[in-house]
């Protein structure tokens, strides 16, 4: 069954869209991430205009990250103070990102930037997940590897404050800068940024792992709210029908994810996801190499 998406101005299979939402839901049910890094490239590959895929995915993430955030918030696994600084950096970054998005679109480089950025991030993430899933199969003592964080020079920058929940006493500059860049990335790529933010919070900031996902969801939620409103305002590329269908498919995905995470071992899940992410990366890469279907790309001006 086909459904017409009024902002994308094309029709798409209803069950296909629900399935993508379902897949993203499984990811958030299992790992507490929004799944934008998987959803947006799949939407683009399936023929949704990249700009609309990005704008609508931001809107999708608002809903899915709120569901996850509330879970962590109730259990108090959120560092509100750290989150507030990140919201500030991420908010500024995402506003800037939307204007950068518009500029790239005007000079005709948007689709290439999106493709290259996805190839880069999906490649790293896919290889990392595959590597880690194979490694932890041999050595299950991952928890013990996480010792007290090392202090980098940037931890000692000015404006040091205490982050009690994160068990840190560091400068506010590193979290601000990290979240600023992730905000830019989120707006351009249609992701929440959790998949980069979580490792950055653990390995760069050295945050206590207990509060990492909840705090990153707080930033993702806020950044995607800003990004959605700005995309709607500046680029008019938010398709609520599309994001609504993704959210709807996600409801069942979250349940399935929560169920799966108890049934299948984490390594298998990570390996499957790693394979999926890496093949998506290879596919996007090959699209830059093979002869394009359209050598002359047309853009209707209003």
């Amino acid at each position: 069954m086909e459904i017409y998406l009024p902002i994308a101005e094309t029709s798409q299979n209803l069950f296909f869209l629900l399935t993508i939402g379902f897949l993203a839901g499984i990811l958030s049910g299992m790992f507490g991430v929004g799944g934008g890094f998987l959803t947006t490239p799949i939407l683009i590959v399936s023929g949704i205009p990249p700009a609309v895929a990005v704008g609508s995915e931001a809107n999708h993430i608002v809903g899915s990250s709120l569901t996850g955030f509330l879970n962590y918030f109730r259990r108090k696994y959120v560092d509100i103070r750290m989150g507030s600084i990140m919201i500030f950096g991420g908010g500024i970054g995402s506003v800037l990102g939307v204007y950068l998005f518009k500029y790239l679109s005007l000079i005709g480089r948007l689709e290439e930037v999106i493709a290259v950025a996805y190839i880069f991030f999906l490649g790293i993430l896919g290889i990392y997940m595959l590597y880690e899933s194979l490694k932890t199969k041999k050595n299950k003592a991952l928890g013990n590897l996480m010792k007290l964080h090392d202090h980098g020079w940037f931890h000692g920058l000015p404006f040091r404050i205490k982050f009690r929940r994160s068990k840190l006493y560091i400068s506010i500059i590193p979290p601000f800068v990290i979240s600023f860049f992730i905000g830019i990335l989120a707006s351009i790529l249609g992701v929440g940024g959790g998949f980069i933010l979580v490792p950055a919070m653990i390995y760069v900031l050295g945050m206590s792992t207990q509060v990492v996902i909840g705090t990153s969801l707080m930033q993702v939620l806020f950044v995607s709210i800003v990004s959605t409103i700005m995309h709607a305002h500046v680029n008019q590329t938010v398709d609520v029908i599309l994001s609504g269908l993704l959210l709807f498919g996600g409801v069942f995905g979250v349940q399935a994810g929560a169920f799966l995470v108890q049934k299948i071992s984490g390594e298998v899940i990570r390996m499957l996801l790693g394979i999926l992410i890496f093949s998506l990366c290879v596919f996007l890469f090959s699209k830059l190499l093979v002869n394009p279907n359209l050598v002359y790309v047309l853009e209707f001006l209003r």
């Binding site: 005709g108 394009p292 359209l294 050598v295 002359y296 790309v297 047309l298 853009e299 209707f300 001006l301």
Partner: peptide, 8 residues
């Protein structure tokens, strides 16, 4: 329509 054409 007015169109912008990009050549690959």
């Amino acid at each position: 329509k007015k169109i912008k054409v990009f050549k690959k």
